[in-house]
Structure formats: C-alpha cells, structure tokens
Design a protein around this nucleic acid. Sequence first.
RNA 1: GCCCAAGUGGUGGAAUUGGUAUACACGCACGACUCAAAAUCGUGUGGCGCAAGCCAUAAGAGUUCGAGUCUCUUCUUGGGCACCA
Length: 1008
Amino acid sequence: MPASTRGNVHSSTRGGYICRFMEKYNPKEIEKKWQEKWESAGLYKDYSRAKKFYALDMFPYPSGAGLHVGHPKGFIATDVISRFKMLSGYSVLHPMGWDAFGLPAENYAIKNKVHPSVATEKNIATFKKQLEAFGFTYDWDREISTTDPAYYKWTQWIFLKLFEKGLAYESNEPVNWCPSCKTVLSNEDLEDGLCERCGTQVVQKKMRQWVLKMTAYAERLLADLDSEELDWEDAIIQQQKNWIGKSEGATVLFEIKISNKNGISNDQFPISNKIQNPNDQNLKQSIEVFTTRVDTIFGCTYCVVAPEHSILEKLKSQITNYKEVEDYVIASQNKTILERTELQKEKTGVKLQGVEVINPFNNETVPLFVADYVLGGYGTGAVMAVPAHDERDFEFAKKYDLPIKQSVAPDYTAYLKTARTLNVLESIFESAAKQAIKIWLLGGLSTPFHCGVIYREHSDLDLITKDDESFKKAIQLFEELGFEKVGEKKISETLTNFIYKKDDVEIDIGPSQGELGLIEADFEEDVKKVADFKALVLSERFIKTFKEQQLQTRKEEKDKLDFEYLNGKVFTEDGFLVSSDNYNALTSGQAREKMTAWLEEKKLGEKKINFKMRDWIFSRQRYWGEPIPVVHCEKCGAVGVPEEQLPLQLPEVENYEPTGTGESPLANIEQWVNTVCPKCGGPAKRETNTMPQWAGSSWYYLRYIDPKNAEKLIEPQLEKDWMPVDLYVGGAEHATRHLLYARFWHKFLYDLGVVTTSEPFKRLMHVGLILAQDGRKMSKRWNNVINPDEVIGQFGADSMRLYEMFMGPFSQSVAWNTNGVSGVRKFLEKVWKLQEKVTSKQELGTSKSKNILHKTIKKVTGDIENFRFNTAISQLMILVNSLEKEYAKSATTKAHMRKEDYEKLLLILSPFAPHITEELWQQLGNEQSIFLQTWPVAEDKYLKDEEVEMVIQVNGKVRERLMVSPDVTEDEIKETALESEKVKKFTDGKEIRKIIFVPEKLINIVLN
RNA sequence: GCCCAAGUGGUGGAAUUGGUAUACACGCACGACUCAAAAUCGUGUGGCGCAAGCCAUAAGAGUUCGAGUCUCUUCUUGGGCACCA
C-alpha cells in the first residue's frame, strides 16, 4: 500500500465544507484499532442505563476445528440487537462463554495422553480469538466455562439440591448403551436408535443410573409454554409440547382368568381390591391397562402386554405355552430399536395360552397377548386393544384374525325434542349425508319447534364464525332444502345466528360457540328443567334411523370392512357410542367422563395422565464431566457430599479410557474413590459417574449475571435486575433437549427461591443454518468448510457481519456465496465515499433525500426489532444508492449532504457495521464513540411524500400510472384517470359499473 | 403414517393490513477505462411478441372490483415426531 494513503486524516473546516484527504477504506486497519479502543474504554460495561436488556447466545462447544462461518450468524444477530439496544438507552448484558465438557476433548486426551483441560484451553483460546475479530460487544469479564471448578461447583450444588428434594434418584432400568462411546445415553441423545455422536447401534443394558425426576415438572413445563410472557415461535412450542406428550386417560383393571387345567385354579386368587395395593400377591390378579379412549372399551376384543411386563414372569406356571412366550420375549429384547421401528408394519405377538382377561364393563372374556408393539416404558405397559377404533390394534387383529367390534359411530348426533321436527331433520340429514357433510344437531332450547344446528366438518371444537366455510356450506344446504331466512339473532358482538324456517319448523343455524361441552351443558340443563328426557329417547331413535341410512350407503359402496363408516378407514375419532349398553348415544367425551367415574366408584381404575417425556438419565461413564457429588456408604446408602466440600474436583488420572464395564475411569483411582461417609464417618466410596454435557448448559445464563460469586450461585438482587433473558438466539437443534433441560432446572431453582422468574427465556429466535456453496452441510468430510478468518481477512469483519445478516430471512438456512460478500463490501465502500459529500452548511440537503433517509430510519428500526435484518440492509442500500445518484447528478464536485443527516445514516448502520461507522463518525470530528449516541427517530414531517404514483386499473389491469399529490381527492383523480388516453382506449364505448379508490395507491375502473 | 413450515427470475430473496409482483444483492450480457486482465464505472436483464399487448408467484379450483397474500383440493421440498394406546 502506498504510504500516502496510510497517513493521518487531515481535515479542516473551510467555507462550511469539511475537507480532507480521504483515505481508502481499509477494514483491516480500522477494525483492529477500534476493537482495541472499545475494549480498553470498557464501552460495553456500562450497566448504569435506565432500562435493561439481556441478550444471550447459545454458548459454543469449543471444538478443535475452530469456528466456521455458520457459527457466528446468531452471534452477529445478538450483537446487532445489543448495539441497537445500547443506542436506545438500555444497559445491555451480552456475555459469552464455553460449553467445554464433552467427548471430543476426552477422545483427544485418550489419543494423545494429555489432560482434556489442556486441549480445551487451547480450543477456547482459538475460539475467543476468532470471535474477537468480529468486534462483538461481549463483556469478557463475565466469561465462563462449564469446566471451570468455580463454575461446576454450582452445577454440583444444583445436583445436591435435587438430590435433597428427592428429584435425583438411582435406578436400575434398562438404558441406552453406546458400545463405542462406552457410555449411557439419554433417550434424547439418540437419532433413529443410533448414538447421535458416533452413529453406533445403541443396545439396551440394565445398569445403575442417576436419574433426574423431570416428569415431576412435566405439567408445569407444558403449561408455561402457553404463558403470555413467552415470545417463542409456534413451531418450537409445538415441538416441545409433542416432546412432553401429555395424554389424559384412565387406567382400567382387567381381571385375569386362569383357564389352565394343569395350573392353579382361579380360586387361588382371592378377590379383593387390587388398585390400593397392586403389589400384593394375595390380591386378585389383574392387569392394569392405560387408555385415552376408555369410551371404546365395549369394542375391546383382546388385551396386550409388552414383552417387559412383569405379569409374564408371575403367570409362568399358568401359561401353557410359556416356552413360546419366553422365546418371543427374548427375541424382541434382542431386536434393536431400529428394527422395532422399521418393522413396525409387521406386527408380531404371541397369545398367552391358559390365561384370559375380563373386561370389567361387560364381563366379556377376551384373550391376552404379548406383543412388542406395546411399549414397556409407557403407561402401564399393557393396553386394551380395540381394533375397530385403533389402527395398530386393527392391523394386529387382521393378522391374527381377531374379532373387530365397533363401539363408536361417527359424529352424527341428534337431540330432538319433538317428533314433529324429526321429519324435517331427517331430510336434512339425508341431504347432508349425500354431500358427505357432518352435522351436529343440538337443542330444543327454547320452543318445541326450535333446534340449533351447527354444521361441523371436523371433529375439533373450534369456535365457528359466520365467515367459516363450514358455516357457509350449512347455509347453502338449508337453502337447497327450501328453508327461508326469517331473521337474525345476535348472540354476542361477533356471533350471530340466522333463523331459517320451513313447514312450521324454525331452525337456528350457527355460527355458535363450538365448545361442545358448553352447549350440551345448556341443553342438559334445559332438559332437566322440563323434567323431560324424551329428548334422549328420541335421540336414540334418531340415531337408529340415521345409522340405517349409513348402512345403506355403505352397502352401496360395497365396503369390505365391517366396522368402516367413512372413507374406508378405521374410525379413530370421537363420535357417539353404539353397542355399549347404557352408554349408548353418549358422545365420546361424555362417555369417557361417565365411564371413568364408574371405574373410580368400583375401584376398577382411575383417571390418569401420562407423559411421553421420561425422567432424565443423568449419569455418564466418562471422565470429562462434572463428578456427581455423592458417596456410597454401606450403612447410610447414597449420601450427598456436604456443600462446603464443593467443588468436588475431577482428579488427575493416567488413563482417560472408559473401562467399558460401565464404570468411569474414575473408578480406577483408589485414593479418590475411597473416602469416608459424611454422615456416619464410616468407609465409603465416591460415585464415579459424571454428569452429561447438558448439565452445565442448563443454567449458565444465570452465572453470567454474577460470574465470580464464590458464596452464592447468584446474588438475588442481580438476578432480579437482569432476569429473564430478553433474547435467546441459537440453533433449532436445541429446540427440545437443551431448552427442556434448562427450563426444568430453572423451575427447580425457582422453587428453591434462587430465581424469581418461572421461565428463563422470554424471547427465543432460531438461527438458520449456513450451508456450503454446494448446498450441502459444511463439513470436513465434504471439504467445503468456509473459515471466517479468511472471509474477514479478505473483506473485513463489517462486510462479513453485513453479509450474514443480508443473506436471507434469519431463521432460514441459506447456502454461502462468497460473491455476496463482495456485494456488501461494495456497499460499504459507497458509504465510505459519501463522506466526501458531507457539508456542515445548514440549508443544503434536498427534501427528497430527507424523505428517504427518514423512511429508512423507520424501516431499519422496525426491521431490527423483528429480526428482519435482510430487509433492513436492503433499505440502507436503497438509501445509499439514492444519495449517490443524487450527488452524482449535481454539478458541484463539492459535497452537499448535511453532516447531521450523514450521521443519522451512520447511526442506523452502526449495529451492523460497527467499525466503519465508528471510524467515519470520528472522522467527522466527533470525539465520543458512536455507540454512546442516541438512536435517531424518524420524523413525521419528513415521512410524507410530496408526490405519489397512482396506478389506474381498468378491470384490475394496470393501464396508466400518474404522479399526483398524496392529498388528491377521489373525484379529482377519477376525472384525470378517465381523461387519460391510455385509459380511454379500454373504456371507450363501455359502461362503467363502479370505480374503486384506494388513497395513495390506485383506482380501479370496473366495466360492465 | 402424524405434526409443523415453506414453494416467487439463472441464484439468494423483496412485496407490513388483499391494492403497481420480481425491491435489494449475486450472476449474466454489452459498453467505457486498459497493450491485456483484474478492479472500477455505465447500461440492460421474468417469458413470448416488431409493436400494441399477452402470459407468469408449484398445479387446479373458489371468494373478490382486485389474490404471491384468504379458502378448498393436489403435488413437491425441508424440519420434527415416529407403534406413546
């Protein structure tokens, strides 16, 4: 570089113009300079402003490979927001740290015989250096690493508290074991039954494990997702809900009937109440099943237990084909998870000979099977099978030729009060059936001839409004049937019923509150009032009539399967009950309530809520993790390490290799393992398992607030000042696991009184992946990784930041394109050159440039707040292009952009490109940092356009464009438009039906 | 199979409540500068057509004066869940 371009900036103010010998834009030089200045000035450590904002990134795992260009995308976004918030008067907490426990460092240690902390430290240094090149606003005084004993002291402390509260327990359940990593994995760590880290087939192994009772918080984890406080994308909320997987149902006891002549007779199981003491061998033998569809129980034709079910062992002597059963159990145990899922279409099972079960509702005896399509770990590990209303049971029943018995019919229900309406309604149903429309009839609410009709297309119970398609169709249907509209009835602000009449029968047609329960409650009440249960009787009669119609239709369609009513599918939806004794004609919902109540009364079952989410298997048999602070004493059992002994540090070992026997390498260090019991002083052994990597990341956001506190996890006042996290940005791959674990721990800490918010993260944004230029994932394997250092070296950090924000919508994955970086670099060069045009004279600067500047201020402000960085940058480009064009036109070579306008441009660009804007800001003669200024406000007086383009459409097609004042009246513009030659061409000789006028946008001339 | 999101030029993508489709950027083409190249600057760039104009937002229908946007059906892609009774 020639020496002349590197010198000092020479500037002086002469005749109102700022004159200088402009340097070339040299990002390398200015970026380093400002990073150092900002850091030494402590620019980001001003926490004294009035409002607070906590911006958090998901902290990275410092791998040996360093950053690739995908990592910083989220970091750039939080930095843009942080700088924007600082300029808007907020104290901003924007920390960074390291999630540094984990397998890669350990595997490296095994290979090279060095302590994992050595590699970790080196990697952290690399990552930090790479991040620093971006000019982020991190307060490095708050840096934390999960591997730092001063940090993991508190991770262990949380574990101790969980242990004290009974939320950490030891279990011997079968767990997922990865033979390659030689450790246990949680369910969440699996991908298609493979270890997510190494892709090895996971096997089931029974081992002693530490487990955290996350299910105790399931209800709250679910309920708080709907909290107003939470500003998360719906998709993530939905994913979390699915993962938690709440289902409400009931347990039912099926009594076991022994029919084995050689075995013990049924008399040996005295009949008494099983539910109160299910483990008592002397009680009546029953199987407890879990179902969400107890309303289908009259259609139960067999029951199934999972291969793991303990009943098999208990009934060993009663099962005549026990050998066959045992073989099946062993075979399914040997099946991998993969096989169990892939072979899901081929269901297998074995019928238990000599044993049957009794359905408590109808006392029918049905066969019992063992089959691995029933999961041992969910519910009770046993189900009642209703092939008519469950697809899995249906498949199984077809294969083993079991009976299929219908007990629920699709949701045609009619509650009628008089026979008179019946005829009319029958014709409605007939017509509806022909059009495959489902209808609910509810009512008899006010007059004998009066019933409400709600059209329902789906079985969900959403509010139906009069704009709904289904409602429109219902109206159509009634009109087709010859009904006449005779009036309207306003129910609420938004809901109106229409009253239709035909042959003396009046019918209300929704829209109506689709909440079935509500309406039916009203109805029931009404019925009770007149003490007249005719309605129900009639209802049954009607169902019969209607069912017959259905059967006829079915015959015509020649459906093959006996139970099918609609579309040739198993009917798995709610409907009304048939062939179910005195539960007939109830809706599924009503039946479930009534049946569950009956079960509870007879002590044959109870209401039950189940979750898919399991407790969190919390131990790993590896070295590089937080030691679990527990000792095992022969006398006292598992005892927590006293708080004052924390942190329980990882000891030095010679060999980091896992033992493979299920014990961690720690087990080999006798002097560490052997200790005394803190309770009784007797000999004890330390727990040698370590915590999973997820532990440290489940609470790190709290520690940033008070990173050096040796006495407490966090100072209560500081917690109150900063929590919750206002913005949390990270990858969608953490949508379930990390976020559930962190929310779980947070709620636990809330219960302890350590934190004061029930949820940790107020707003959550997901960063989209950056793919390689070839559209694949960036990976060493494909050799397509782009290193951010190189991009920064070539284009500068500001260009890199700008490009990643400009690539596309923030949450979407996009392929990297280096050409794109040169595009934003050109933009920055233009901004740099604009300084030539700056003047301090007051009278200059056109109103047009003012207009576009203030429009840009408005758009950029809104876009940043809504994470639409790409359009914010595009608007900045439009502004700069327009300014450039304007000044290029001007005859004077000297500038005429007002200094304060240029400063505003720099300010709104500064969150994206901090270095260049700070440099230009100070070159203008400002001494204070640009980041200590105030975010500009778009002024209304400049936002109004002098002229707008109005589009003239004829029949919706654009025929002419006119520049007019925005205040032009409708009549004026109509007149002008109709006189236009281009318009005349299309309107001549035609009659104008109407003219649509949209102020400042268009007029549309509609011809006949 | 189920749930969710999305389909717009050669490419990444704009279009805030239904109101000018293709902003901004890349790429490409031509031109200027240059011995030449790079860089830079300028012009053009959805398709068809000489033009007037017509046709285009995955496909098809619908509502509307007007649909990329709303409704229904179908297809495709991406993500999540996957025998959870």
